[in-house]
Design a protein around this nucleic acid. Structure first.
Length: 734
RNA sequence: GCCGGGGUAGCUCAGUUGGUUAGAGCAAUGGAAUCAUAAUCCAUGUGUCGGGGGUUCAAAUCCCUCUCCCGGUACCA
């Protein structure tokens, strides 16, 4: 029996999940997990919050709360949003647990003892008063490049320069305000070079089965050669090194594991936690996690976004193999990125839809399914793709409501009105229908060689005659659709898989049309009975095949039959029945009483999504509410200037080198307008410049001012010029 | 600058061991039907497969080159 471990990239507990995340690493994994569970396979789906790293410290300080409060807030919010999104994690935990810290330390100690870690001394700022080393973002000083006096430890916000911390002038600790001293500190590096050959072999071994983008990016890193990588940092938030045996206690003080090292191990620690919980409920032992990580019969599939590829194809495998005894990912089906209305998701530009916002505006479970469907049909499987509200509306109305929902409804309505709320009872001459259907499927299964046309044509005459042409094509379409859906899910081609499922619903509608039961009920009642009996089976089959992507709706449909609901929910990682296989056979008994049906998918009006579209990009970035006083403005000297020379800066896409005349002064200004203006066009133009701007060096050229230009969100740009170009250069602008 | 991905029908996208008239869904047009949420079903595509060049009997597919978009990374800031 196959066993499959599924993980999704651990979301960082520093922000809310948005639709891009959902489409990248979470929904695909959930669909896959549900598909496998419905196929009767043993599945464990593990995920949880990544709660370490300096970004969480920074957020905590910004919001003036503890890191613990930050991670609690986002962990809980994301967990809730995932639940409403119908995710079926077997466990959704977090990396702040003790079992996680112990697991991470175990790996560290093991790698240390095997010589895969290197200790390196380096000099860093140390705050004597706070008794701690200062990470880059905890130091402020004067930028060695532009002189900005609030530059951060490793990067200047003003001029953007990167530099070594120690180059910062007049450094101050932002914790105590004291001047830090320079002190030696020790960090541990993982020697990834040790694993170069191993990883090359591993990656090439996957060249047939992995997606191209995943292979290429992994190869690209391998080609550059794997360098040592620091796996510790000076920080008080994270997996503390002072718990590690085998290293100098003094050196370990105030250090934690670098977040990327511990985060991937969360998959393992969370599995341990799951096993503990199962053991408590007498469902196995706490050692059961080993079955999922140390048994070569287990397939491991890691769902991630493309930003995470190297961590899961190179770094994590290196760690696992260094530790030894662990299985490696069988597949890493990384998705590309999802865009929103043609642009990248950006929280700061307010160009985003958080899952929780969607859920607030569309609380009904049917819209969860609509969203899952729309996202799934737009999964960025082979390149970046786009989510639009219009598409959401179209998919919901034209596909879910009109094709799938309407089929279910028309069948149920018809049965209710004409057959007394019961599955129609077959007449004597049709009694063999169920058996014939079963035999037809069995024949197709046994003779299938991959060619569907051939399969259809090879159906023996005797079996053909047991059905009308319409019936035969419908049952064939069901079998083919199920077969294709299965094949495509197994290849991680979810969009195509779901299209095939929808094709079954299309065939079902066609059958209903062709069978014309509304006529037959009067002229040929037996035909109507047969047709509707078949249609009822199809309703049930569709509820299984759509369950991975539309669990809420499938559940509602299955409840019409008073069955145990089977939509691939988490099931304690037990092997189950293969509903996926049996759904091609008729399973709803004649005469069965049905529940009152209701509309599965309501349509969405354009007026519902209109405000959603409008909302995007509102209130972005600018602090419009921050006012400056007149005195402040007086400090800014704006002058008109005439461009006397302009040329492109070599090696730069965006920058032009301008010579400008401001009255009797000449200045050189580096302006970022090369993508918008040809140098020649600017010569002779009168522009407006900031005359008293601190000079800065850009690409080795000094810029002594700034050219004013108006810009739009979508990157269009035009320079500011006086209305009357007769105005002399050097005139003050105010 | 370097590396990688991408540019295919009005829209969103499939399409690699190079091979017959380049596909799907949506949208559009016409028709059939009226059980059903005016929902369904059938029919209908003159696409420079980003531009140019090359290899080949044959190129969306392989090679070269140009161009545009996206990501990563480096240098300089």
């Amino acid at each position: 029996m196959k066993r499959t471990l599924i993980t999704s990239a651990l979301p960082y507990a520093n922000g809310y999940i948005h639709l891009g995340h959902a489409a990248g690493a979470y929904l695909p994994a959930d669909i896959y997990a549900r598909f496998l569970r419905l196929s009767g396979e043993e599945v464990l789906y593990v995920c949880g919050s990544d709660e370490h790293g300096v970004a969480i410290n920074i957020s905590a300080e910004k919001e003036k709360v503890t890191p613990k409060e930050i991670i609690d807030k986002y962990h809980n919010a994301n967990y809730e949003a995932f639940n409403k999104f119908a995710m079926t994690f077997d466990i959704y935990s977090r990396t702040s647990t003790d079992v996680h810290h112990r697991t991470a330390i175990e790996f560290f100690e093991d790698l240390l003892s095997k010589g895969h870690l290197a200790e390196k001394d380096e000099e860093q700022f140390y705050d004597k008063k706070a008794e701690m080393f200062l990470p880059d973002r905890y130091v402020e000083g004067i930028c060695p490049n532009c002189g900005y006096d609030h530059a951060r430890g490793d990067q200047c916000d003003q001029c953007g320069a990167y530099y070594n911390q120690l180059e910062l002038k007049s450094p101050k600790s932002i914790i105590s305000g004291e001047t830090p001293i320079v002190k030696k500190t020790t960090h541990w590096y993982m020697k990834f070079g040790d694993f170069q050959q191993f990883l090359e072999k591993y990656i090439e071994g996957k060249s047939d089965s992995w997606k191209d983008n995943v292979l290429q990016q992994s190869r690209s890193w391998l080609k550059q050669g794997l360098a040592d990588r620091a796996i510790t940092r000076d920080l008080n938030w994270g997996v503390r090194l002072d718990r590690v045996h085998g290293i100098d206690k003094e050196k370990a003080k105030g250090k934690v594991l670098y977040v990327w090292f511990d985060a991937v191990l969360g998959y393992i620690s969370m599995t341990k936690e799951w096993a503990e919980a199962q053991a408590k409920n007498n469902n196995g032992t706490s050692e059961d996690w080993k079955k999922w990580w140390q048994d070569s019969d287990t397939r491991y599939v890691a769902f991630i976004g493309k930003d995470n590829i190297v961590f899961h194809t190179l770094i994590f495998p290196a760690m696992l193999s260094a530790k030894g005894g662990y299985i490696l990912p069988n597949n890493v089906p990384a998705n590309e990125f999802l865009n929103l209305e043609g642009r990248k998701f950006s929280k700061s530009m307010n160009w985003s839809i958080d899952l929780r916002d969607f859920q607030k505006d569309f609380p009904d479970a049917q819209y969860t399914d609509s969203l899952r469907y729309t996202l799934a049909m737009n999964f960025p499987e082979s390149r970046d793709s786009d989510f639009t509200w219009k598409d959401f509306l179209n998919r919901n109305n034209n596909e879910l409501a009109d094709i799938f929902g309407n089929f279910v409804n028309r069948v149920m309505q018809f049965v209710f009105k004409n057959f007394g709320q019961k599955v129609p009872t077959l007449s004597e001459t049709s009694k063999s229908l169920v058996g014939d259907w079963n035999n037809l499927i069995d024949y197709l299964e046994s003779s299938f060689d991959g060619n569907f046309d051939k399969a259809y044509n090879s159906i023996p005459e005797k079996q053909r005659q047991q059905f009308s042409n319409e019936e035969l094509s419908l049952i064939f379409a069901l079998w083919k659709g199920a077969k294709e859906t299965t094949r495509l899910y197994n290849k991680f081609k979810f969009r195509d898989a779901i299209t095939e499922t929808m094709n079954i619903a299309r065939a079902a509608n066609k059958f209903f049309n062709d069978a014309e039961p509304w006529k037959a009920i009067k002229q040929d009642p037996e035909k109507a009975v047969r047709s509707l009996f078949i249609c009822v089976q199809l309703v049930h089959s569709l509820s299984i095949y759509f369950a991975p992507v539309l669990p809420n709706s499938s559940k509602r449909i299955q409840m019409l039959f008073d069955f145990d609901v089977e939509v691939g929910n988490a099931n304690g990682a037990k092997a189950g029945e293969n509903y996926w296989l049996t759904a091609v056979y008729p399973s709803i008994e004649e005469g069965k009483k049905l529940q009152q049906p209701s509309i599965i998918f309501n349509k969405i009006e354009y007026s519902t999504i209109e405000p959603q579209i409008k909302k995007l990009g509102e209130n972005n970035g600018a602090k419009a509410d921050e006012l400056i006083d007149f005195e402040y403005f007086q400090k800014i000297k704006l002058k008109t200037a005439v461009v006397t020379a302009a040329e492109k800066l070599k090696k730069s896409k965006k920058l032009l080198k301008l010579k400008v005349k401001i009255g009797d002064k000449e200045k050189q200004i580096i302006a970022g307008v090369a993508e918008h203006y040809e140098p020649e066009y600017l010569i002779g133009k009168v522009i407006v410049v900031v005359d008293n701007l601190q000079p800065a060096k850009l690409m080795g050229e000094e810029s002594q001012g700034m050219m004013l230009a108006a810009s739009t969100d979508d990157g269009k740009l035009c320079f500011v010029t006086p209305e009357n170009s007769e105005i002399p250069d050097g005139a003050e602008v105010r």
